[in-house]
Nucleic acid binder design. Structure first.
Lengths: 125, 125
DNA sequence: ATGCTGTCTCGACGTTTCTCAAATCAGAGA
DNA sequence: TCTCTGATTTGAGAAACGTCGAGACAGCAT
C-alpha cells in the first residue's frame, strides 16, 4: 500500500493550500461539499477519530500499526479497514518499512477542514 | 420541534466553552471521541454540509426551512430528516415562528470541532 | 369551522457501514 | 526455499443510513 494517490485536489483549491472558503462566509458550492464531506464522514466514527488522534499526536510524526491495533478491543482487520477509510479520505498516508507499516497525517486537508469550521458568526450573532 | 435539549455537554467540557483538546496534542480519550464523532458524522454528508453552510452564512444568522428545501433536488421529508440529524448532533438549533421554522448554528460546538483539527505538527514534521 | 400551506413523523426500500473469521500478501530470517 | 510474523483483502451478516410517499400536525386566513 502507500501507493494510492488519494485526494489529489480535494477542493478546487490545491490540497496543500493554506486555506479554503469558511463555512459561515459564503454558502459553499455543491462540489466543495461533495469533496469535503467524505473527510468529515471519515472522522465521524469514534474509532477513527481516536486513530486520527493517535497518529497526529505520535511523537515521531508517525506511528506503527502494531502500536495502534492493541489500543482497541477490535480485531486487526477491523483496524486495518478503518485505516483504509482514513487513507481513502486523504486524511493520512502510510508507508511500509520492512515488516511494519507506519501512518502519518496529511496536514493540508486537516487545515482545510479546520478553516471551514473556524469562522464564527460574521457580526450578527 | 426546537424543544429537544440536544447535546447538553458534548464533551466533559461545557458545550459553549471556548476550546477543547486539540487532536495532535494528546491522544484524545475514548469518551471525547465518542462525544465528538457524531458531530463529524453529521457533517459527513454533502447535503448536510451544504445545509450547514447555508445556515451559517445566512445574513440574519438564521434561515427558514422554506428557503433551504428548494435549494436541493430532494423531497421535503428528506431535507427535514437531514435537519433533524444536524439538530441531534447539536450543530444547529431551530424554532418555529408562525408558519415557518428557522434554523441557526450553535457556534460553541463548531468551535470545539475546529479547535480539535486546528493543530499542525508539533515540531517534528 | 373549514381549508390551505409549511413542516415533521412514519413506514418502507435499497444501499452502505461495521465487524469478524478466513484467506492472502509482504518482508525477514533460518 | 520454507516458515514465521505483521498487515491487508475478501466474504458474510447485522445494523445504520438516505431517500421517498403517505399521512399527521401547526398555524394562518377565510
Amino acid at each position: 500500500m502507500s501507493k494510492q494517490a488519494v485526494a489529489p485536489a480535494i477542493t478546487g483549491v490545491p490540497v496543500d493550500a493554506p486555506c479554503c472558503p469558511p463555512i459561515a462566509e459564503h454558502r459553499i458550492p455543491a462540489e466543495t461539499a461533495a469533496a469535503l464531506a467524505p473527510a468529515f464522514k471519515a472522522l465521524g466514527d469514534p474509532v477513527r477519530l481516536q486513530l486520527m488522534s493517535m497518529i497526529a499526536s505520535a511523537p515521531a510524526g508517525e506511528i506503527c500499526v502494531c502500536e495502534l491495533t492493541p489500543a482497541f478491543e477490535l480485531s486487526g482487520p477491523t483496524i486495518s479497514h478503518h485505516l483504509k477509510t482514513l487513507r481513502e479520505a486523504g486524511l493520512v498516508d502510510a508507508d511500509r518499512r520492512g515488516t511494519w507499516v507506519y501512518y502519518r497525517t496529511r496536514p493540508g486537508i486537516l487545515r482545510q477542514l479546520a478553516a471551514l469550521l473556524s469562522v464564527e458568526m460574521p457580526a450578527t450573532a
